[in-house]
Nucleic acid binder design. Structure first.
Length: 576
RNA sequence: GGGCGCGUAGCCUAGCCUGGAUAGGGCACCGGGUUCCUAACCCGGCGGUCGAGGGUUCAAAUCCCUCCGCGCCCGCCA
C-alpha cells in the first residue's frame, strides 16, 4: 500500500500526495484490490482521463506485492499478488485462531449500557432489538481492543416498578376485582416468575384509569419508595422478575457484567449533591411553586422542551436527574460511555447532553438509537395492547420449527443432539434476523421473516460452518498447523474466498468505530456465501495434490466464520 | 406546529458518514443441479424513475435545498 501511494505521488509530481491518498480506494473485484480514479487529476491537467490513466499505469512497474498495475478506462487498478494474499491471509487466520479478527488491548475502558427493560413482566420482543444490538456491539468493541463493561440499568424508582410491588405486597384477595378476574385460573405452579408476577400488570394498568382509590394507593406507594421506605417485597419481586427476564436473554447468550439499580443514586446521596449543583448552575431557575428547572435553549433543544425540570415542587428527583447521576458515575469510571436506546428516547438523550454540559462535564455518551419493532398491523408492540409477543414464546416457536427441519434431514442424532441443534439454530436465526438490519431502520415484526432459516439468515451461516467442520473431520490427516502451498490456492473461487476471509479484521474495526453492527452480519453472510460457491465448485477431499492446501483454506474459513458468529452471539455448530 | 429517524424491484435489505467503473444480497416467482466433501446448498432467469423536484460537480443512491409519505418524541412519567 505504501509503495503504491509512493508511486502515485511520483507520477504527476505537482499533485498533492494527500489528494492521492484520499482518492485511492479499496475496490473489490476479481482483477483489482485497489483502484485509483484519475478524473480529478485529468481535469486539473486538462487531458483525457483514459490517456492519463494509461500514462500513470505505464509508469508504475509491478512489484512483489502488486502483481498487476493496469489502466482500465479512467482508473488505474492494482492487484495484490494472489499468492501473497493467500499466504498472508491463511497464515494470519490459522495462526491467530480464535483471536483472528481481534486486536490487541488498547487500554481504553468503555461502558455499554443496553436493554435496561423494566422488570414488570416477561421480556417481550419489543425490547429484543436493544438487547441484541447492545450485546453484539459490546462483543465487537471487545474484539477491537477496548475493555468493555456491559451494564443493565434497573428501574426500581418509578410508577411501573411500584405497580408490581403494589400487587405482590398484598394478597390477590385484596386486588381490585377486575384485576383478579383477569388472571383467574391462569398460570401454573412451575411457571417462570416473570410470567407469574407480570400477569396481573396489564389489568392493573387498565384499572388505574378508572379507579381513583387504587390509583391513589399506588401513588402513595410511589412516594414511599421515593422516600427510601419501600415495602420488603419491592426489591425481592423486582429481582425475581428480572431473573426470569435474564433467563430468556440467556438463551440468546446475552449476559451483563453489572446491574445498576436506579434507587442507589438516591440512597447514596449523589442525586442530592447533583441537585445542589444544578440549582447553582448558570441556567438554573426556580418555578413559582418551588420546582427547579434548567433553561436549556442554548443547548439546541427544541423550543417546546427548553425548560428541563430537574426537581419537583416537593423536592424529589426525576428520572432525568437520576439518569444524570448515573451518567456522571459512569464517566468517573469509564473513558467512553455508550447507550443503546430506542429512538423514542431521542429527546431524553439530548436533554441528558444538555444537563451534562450545564454541570461542566465535557464528555458525552455515544447514543446508538434504534427504531422500535412495530407490530405487523403497524402499531407499537405493547404489553397493554395485547400485541406483545414474549421472547420465550418466540424462541420456543423457533425451536420447534428448527426441530422439524433437523428431523427432516437427520436420522442419526440422539434426542439431546436434536435438542441442542434446534435451540442453537433457533436462537441463531432470531439474533441474525434482528442484527442484520441497520438500527435506525424501522422494522415490522413478522413471524415468517423472523423464523427464516434460508437465504440471508443465521442458519445459513451456521450451515456453512458445519460444512467446513465436516470437511475437516473427513480429511482425517488435516489438523493444525495445516501446511499449505499458496500457489495451489489462486483459482477463481479459492482466491475470492481468501479475499473475504482477509476482510474480517477490517470489518471488526469498522463495526467498533461506527457501531454499525449490521455490517458484521453482512460480512458473515458474504463469507458463508462465497464458501458455498467454493464448496460446490472445488473438490477438497478429492483435490489431488491441492488437497492439503484446500483443507488449510477450509480451516481458515471455518475459523473466520466461527469468530464472526461468536461476535454476533450465534453458536457455531460442528454439525446440523 | 417543532425535533429526530426512515423512504432503494411485489416484499425485505446493503451501499449514504468519506460522491466515482454495469446499485450488491435475500424472499417470492420461473428453469436447471444430489451414483461426488451435509440440497438449511448451488447455477441460470425475471424484476430498479435509488419517494418527488431542484441545486452543486467532469461525475449524485451518496452532498445541499424544497416538498411528499411513514414512524417516534415534544409530562413536575419512566
Amino acid at each position: 500500500m505504501a509503495g503504491i501511494v509512493g508511486a502515485m505521488r511520483r507520477r504527476p509530481s505537482e499533485v498533492d500526495p494527500a489528494t492521492v491518498d484520499g482518492l485511492l480506494e479499496i475496490a473489490a473485484g476479481p482483477e483489482r484490490d485497489l483502484a485509483f480514479p484519475v478524473h480529478r487529476l485529468a481535469a486539473q491537467a486538462r487531458v483525457r482521463p483514459e490517456e492519463l490513466a494509461a500514462a500513470i499505469a505505464a509508469g508504475i512497474p509491478p512489484t512483489a506485492q502488486f502483481r498487476r498495475v493496469g489502466a482500465d478506462g479512467a482508473y488505474v487498478n492494482f492487484q495484490v499478488d494472489p499468492v501473497e494474499l493467500v499466504r498472508a491471509t491463511l497464515d494470519l487466520a490459522l495462526g491467530r485462531g480464535e483471536r483472528y479478527g481481534h486486536f490487541a488491548p488498547t487500554g481504553e475502558s468503555v461502558c455499554v449500557e443496553h436493554t435496561s427493560a423494566n422488570p414488570t413482566g416477561p421480556f417481550h420482543i419489543g425490547r429484543v432489538r436493544n438487547a441484541i444490538i447492545g450485546d453484539s456491539l459490546a462483543r465487537a468493541l471487545r474484539a477491537a481492543g477496548p475493555g468493555v463493561t456491559t451494564q443493565y440499568y434497573v428501574d426500581d424508582m418509578g410508577r411501573q416498578s411500584a405497580m408490581i410491588t403494589w400487587l405482590w405486597s398484598r394478597p390477590p384477595e385484596r386486588w381490585p376485582e377486575p384485576v383478579r378476574a383477569a388472571v383467574a385460573g391462569q398460570g401454573s405452579a412451575d411457571e417462570k416468575p416473570d410470567r407469574r408476577r407480570g400477569r396481573p400488570y396489564p389489568a392493573l394498568s387498565a384499572q388505574l384509569k378508572s379507579d381513583p382509590a387504587t390509583a391513589e394507593s399506588v401513588a402513595e406507594l410511589v412516594r414511599r419508595i421515593e422516600q427510601g421506605d419501600p415495602p420488603p417485597e419491592h426489591e425481592a419481586v423486582a429481582r425475581e422478575v428480572l431473573g426470569g427476564m435474564l433467563a430468556s436473554l440467556g438463551r440468546l447468550a446475552i449476559t451483563f457484567d453489572e446491574f445498576v439499580w436506579e434507587s442507589q443514586f438516591v440512597r447514596d446521596g449523589s442525586v442530592a449533591r447533583i441537585l445542589e449543583r444544578l440549582r447553582a448552575a448558570p441556567h438554573a431557575a426556580q418555578e413559582e411553586n418551588g420546582a427547579w428547572s434548567i433553561v436549556a435553549t442554548q443547548y439546541g433543544l427544541p423550543k417546546e422542551s427548553d425548560r428541563v425540570v430537574v426537581q419537583r415542587k416537593d423536592g424529589t428527583s426525576l428520572y432525568v436527574t437520576r439518569d444524570l447521576a448515573y451518567h456522571l458515575a459512569k464517566f468517573s469510571r469509564f473513558e467512553r460511555v455508550i447507550d443503546v436506546l430506542g429512538q423514542d428516547h431521542q429527546l431524553h438523550a439530548r436533554t441528558l447532553e444538555a444537563l451534562l454540559a450545564e454541570l461542566g462535564e465535557p464528555r458525552r455518551p455515544t447514543f446508538v438509537l434504534y427504531q422500535d419493532l412495530t407490530s405487523p398491523e403497524g402499531g407499537r408492540m405493547s404489553t397493554r395492547g395485547g400485541s406483545a409477543v414474549w421472547l420465550d414464546d418466540l424462541l420456543d416457536e423457533a425451536r420447534e420449527r428448527a426441530r422439524r427441519e433437523v428431523l427432516q434431514r437427520r436420522d442419526d442424532l440422539g434426542p439431546a443432539e436434536v435438542e441442542a441443534i434446534s435451540e442453537a439454530v433457533a436462537t441463531g436465526a432470531i439474533r441474525y434476523h434482528v442484527v442484520r438490519v441497520a438500527p435506525e431502520k424501522p422494522v415490522k415484526f413478522r413471524w415468517e421473516e423472523a423464523l427464516s432459516f434460508e437465504g440471508r439468515s443465521g442458519p445459513f451461516v451456521q450451515y456453512a460452518y458445519a460444512r467446513a467442520s465436516s470437511v475437516l473431520r473427513k480429511g482425517d490427516a488435516a489438523r493444525p498447523p495445516y501446511p499449505f502451498e499458496p500457489a495451489l490456492l489462486v483459482g477463481g473461487e479459492e482466491l475470492a474466498l481468501a479475499r473475504v476471509v482477509s476482510r474480517l479484521p477490517r470489518t471488526v474495526a469498522y463495526v467498533a468505530r461506527s457501531a454499525h453492527v449490521h455490517a458484521l452480519a453482512g460480512y458473515a453472510h458474504e463469507l458463508a456465501d462465497q464458501f458455498n460457491r467454493f464448496y460446490h465448485a472445488v473438490p477438497v477431499l478429492a483435490g489431488g495434490e491441492a488437497r492439503e492446501s484446500r483443507l488449510a483454506l477450509v480451516a481458515a474459513v471455518r475459523q473466520a466464520l466461527g469468530n464472526a458468529l461468536r461476535l454476533l452471539g450465534i453458536a457455531p455448530l460442528e454439525s446440523m
